[in-house]
Design a protein around this nucleic acid. Sequence first.
DNA 1: GACGATGATTAGGC
DNA 2: GCCTAATCATCGTC
Length: 414
Amino acid sequence: MLQQQQQQPLTGNGPSSNGRGLGMSGHPGMHALNSVHQASQHRSDGGGGGGGGGDSSGLEGGTENGHETRRDIGDILQQIMTITDQSLDEAQAKKHALNCHRMKPALFSVLCEIKEKTGLSMRNAQEDEPQDPQLVRLDNMLLAEGVAGPEKGGGAAAAVSAATSSGGMSPDSSLEHSDYKSKLSQIRSIYHTELEKYEQACTEFTTHVMNLLREQSRTRPVTPREIERMVAIIHRKFSSIQTQLKQSTCEAVMILRSRFLDARRKRRNFSKQATEVLNEYFYSHLSNPYPSEEAKEELAKQCGITVSQVSNWFGNKRIRYKKNIGKFQEEANLYAMKTALGARQGDDSPHTPNSTGSGSFSLSGSADLFLGVPPVNGEQSTYQMGMQANGNWHGRNSPPSGASPHSDHSDNSD
DNA sequence: GACGATGATTAGGC
DNA sequence: GCCTAATCATCGTC
């Protein structure tokens, strides 16, 4: 591509040996060339002339006639066009002569102008493209994940907090957090190293090309705008490579994240003590096992789990209890006796949630527990189990949100 | 590995 | 937003 452009000014107008250089009068640029001639005349008049080779002697007169002028320009163009057909030494000498020609700057600027008008203007419209939306998305994601931008643990912290707030995080999963963070840090490190490499390579290559173009600008028209355009092309190419890097990084982060979230999904049984606390509350409020928000918080605190885990537990417990009351009978008895014993001793069980300060709930009354004591004959009464015959819990056809356990006790009295 | 227990998730109802 | 019910997925025991 570069080569093509390098050759374009010399060969683009047709074979240099067929004399078409003179035929350029039909070319739109010839009007410009004529004006150049006039400009050069102006300059030579003011500059005192002289210094020109024999070729330019005819121009000294300046105002004599346009015919001679045209022939002079034609000669120069002819020389330029045939320069490639000559031997290296000849061409070198001719090049030097042309470079020293007093019309060279004017001719050069006109060639630049022609090139600008014919070539670049057509391409510019296509090149002004907006920023790639995909790249924007990737950038945003990398920023959100804490891979790009300043390192402050954003992504990792976000993922961890998201996981924690959803209620699945146990204290011993901190190992997973650090693992996640260290892996994310690795990804970040690799990403930045590669990005730096790309940027360095891009800068080096851009500098190289710019130097090359500047060098060539002595022998062919290379406008600053063309150099800019070339730099933009290089940047676009490198940008596409960077996009690939960003895409790969995003994929790596997504995989890491999904693994982390999968790990979070892993079920861990609650501690024995936690289950005891939850069961005690459940069986002591068997007529209305719907802990209020405060009660849930208190239970969560005591069990070392989250409120949503408490909710899940009670949800599961209610369903499973209702589905198979017989199976839970023994468990109910156990907790009934346990709590009844504690109540009789007037002493709070170590596992019993108390109501100190928060006023959340109390197990001082064991009325519900006795509802759970099975009949001697082994049959069970849904009423006794705290449930109505229709399968709903006693006094709770439609569970109100935020029902207080305290109100349970008023229900229990019946 | 089979199986029951159990915590988490999801859909649908209110 | 909380609930039930069904289901999934894992744990623990045999």
